[in-house]
Amino acid sequence: MTEPIVVVAAALYDTGGRLLAARRSAPPELAGRWELPGGKVEPGESPERALVRELREELGVDADPVARVPGEWPLKPGYVLRVWRCDLRSGDPLPLQDHDELRWLGPDEIWSVDWLDQDVPAVKDTVSGTA
């Protein structure tokens, strides 16, 4: 059995404790729904390094992975999602790739967006880990 491809995502919080959500613009079956930003780990790359790279490419920011959120969540067959709580080091997030809108969500707004089905359990565990 082959190891799953790891997809990393950031639970990126600002200094006010708001979580960053990104709305997908592609592919068509995911467009318009929201996710935690991130991407695939490349061969020979650590998950933390992949996360830093993906946030730079997708949002134009530098962030520090602080702690992994316990657990992992299945995506499509052969893929698994792992999430890290991250602090924004520098830059203002912009939807540069794969997204057409970003929102900072306060604790009372977390469920005001239509999260991708596969992100819902990760967001629940991320939010419960901030209490």
Rank of each mutant, 00 (worst) to 15 (best):
D62P: 00
R85K: 13
V52G: 00
A21C: 02
W34N: 03
R53W: 11
E48L: 10
R85F: 05
E58R: 14
A22C: 14
W84K: 03
G39N: 06
P74Y: 11
D100A: 08
G60A: 03
A10G: 08
S112F: 01
V83N: 08
L81F: 05
P27V: 11
T126K: 04
I5K: 13
P93Q: 00
P27Q: 11
G106N: 06
P4A: 05
V113W: 01
A67M: 06
V123N: 07
D62K: 12
G60H: 03
A21E: 01
R82A: 13
G38C: 13
P121I: 07
T130C: 12
A26Q: 14
S25V: 07
L59Q: 02
K40W: 06
P70F: 08
G44D: 14
R24S: 01
E57T: 05
A50S: 15
A50L: 10
D64R: 15
A9C: 12
W34M: 03
R68V: 07
G60R: 05
P121T: 07
P107S: 13
L94F: 01
D92E: 15
A63Q: 12
P121M: 02
A31P: 07
A10V: 03
A63L: 10
W73F: 14
A50P: 06
G91H: 03
Y13P: 03
D14S: 05
D100L: 13
S46V: 01
D98G: 13
W104Q: 09
L102Q: 07
D119W: 02
G38N: 12
P28R: 14
E42I: 04
L19A: 06
E48F: 05
E58D: 08
P93F: 00
E42R: 15
D125G: 01
R33K: 14
T126D: 03
L94W: 03
A26G: 10
P107C: 04
G16S: 08
E58L: 14
D14E: 08
D98Q: 13
D125I: 01
E48W: 11
D87G: 10
